[in-house]
Design a protein around this nucleic acid. Structure first.
Lengths: 153, 153
DNA sequence: TACAGTTGATGACGTACGAAAATCTCGATG
DNA sequence: CATCGAGATTTTCGTACGTCATCAACTGTA
C-alpha cells in the first residue's frame, strides 16, 4: 500500500473539518503533533491533498441554476473546446468522456436567462456538432468527497 | 456595499487558501482580525460557507475511474433511486434533471471492474427504465469553485 | 535504519471583551 | 417637506490571554 492507515485517517479527519488544528487531529488520532505534521506535509507533497477550500453554497450567493451540458465535438477541436469551457469560470467540472457525447460540463448560473445566454454563446462554435443541456432540478448531493478506506489491524 | 464586498473578498481569499489564518486574511483585506472573525462566523451561520475540506486527488489514492451515469426512472421511484445513489459513498454528485434522463450521477471507482460491478448492481432496480454510462477519459477540471463578484466602489 | 515521540523555545494564532467609530432611527424643527 | 441631531444599534478595532504551529535536538523502538 502506497499510503498508510494513519494517512487515511488523517485525510478522513480533515474531510470532517478542513480547518482542524494539528493538535486536535493529533488527539483524535492518538498520535503526536509532530507525526500529524509530518504526514500532512507528505500528503501535500505527494499531491494526495491538493489544497484546502471552503465549501460554498452557491445557491446562497445567487447562483440558483445548475446545468449539465453535453457536447458532440469535431475530433480535432476537442482541446479547443475543453479549454474554452474550462476558462468559463462558472464551469465547475469539464470532462472528456466516452459515449454518445464527447464532453460533459457542469456549470452554475445566476438564472435561466444567464444560462441560456452563455450556452448559446458556446454553441456558436462550428466545431460543436450537437449539444444537449439538462437543467438540475434538485442537487441531491454535489461534490461530496468520500472518506478513504481504513484497514483496521 | 462595503459589507457585502468584504464578505466576497473573504470568500475569495479562502478559495485561494482554505486554511489561511484569520491574521493573514485580515492583513490581505486590510481589516482587523476581529472583523474577519465576525464576518467569517456570519458567513458560516448564513450557510454561505458550509464547511472546509481538503481537495483530494482521488487518482492519487487509487480511484482511477470516473463515470457519469444517466438514468431514466419511474416517476414515483425517483426519491428511492436518488437516496440509494447518495448513500453510495463513491457517488460524488447526484442530480435530478430535466431532459432525456431523470438522474445524472457522477461516481468514482478504483477500476473499470469495480465500476461495472457497482453499476450493474444499481441497474437491477426495476424502477430504472434506461441508463447510459459515460466513462471519463480526461477530467479537464473538476469541482472548481469560482470566485464571487466583488463590486468595486 | 527509519519512523514516532518528547522536550523546549519562539513566534503566530483564535477568541473574548470593552472601547471607539460608523450607521441607522425617528421625532423635532425651521 | 427637507433637514437636523440625540440616542440606539451595528460594525470595527485594539488588547490580552491561553492555545497553537514550527523547528531543532534528542530518545525510544521495531
Amino acid at each position: 500500500m502506497t499510503y498508510e492507515n494513519l494517512d487515511a485517517k488523517l485525510v478522513n479527519a480533515l474531510l470532517g473539518d478542513g480547518r482542524a488544528s494539528l493538535r486536535s487531529l493529533a488527539e483524535e488520532l492518538d498520535v503526536s503533533v509532530t507525526t500529524v505534521s509530518n504526514h500532512l506535509s507528505d500528503l501535500e507533497e505527494e499531491g494526495v491533498i491538493e489544497g484546502y477550500t471552503p465549501r460554498l453554497d452557491y445557491d446562497a450567493v445567487g447562483y440558483d441554476v445548475t446545468a449539465v451540458i453535453q457536447l458532440q465535438v469535431e475530433g480535432n477541436a476537442l482541446p479547443d473546446i475543453t479549454d474554452t469551457l474550462r476558462d468559463h469560470r462558472q464551469m465547475i467540472s469539464v470532462y472528456e468522456v466516452t459515449g454518445d457525447y464527447d464532453v460533459i460540463a457542469i456549470g452554475k448560473f445566476k438564472d435561466t436567462d444567464g444560462m441560456n445566454d452563455q450556452i448559446k454563446e458556446l454553441l456558436t462554435d462550428p466545431d460543436i456538432k450537437a449539444s444537449n443541456t439538462s437543467v438540475v432540478l434538485n442537487a441531491v448531493s454535489e461534490n461530496e468527497q468520500f472518506e478513504l478506506d481504513v484497514e483496521d489491524t
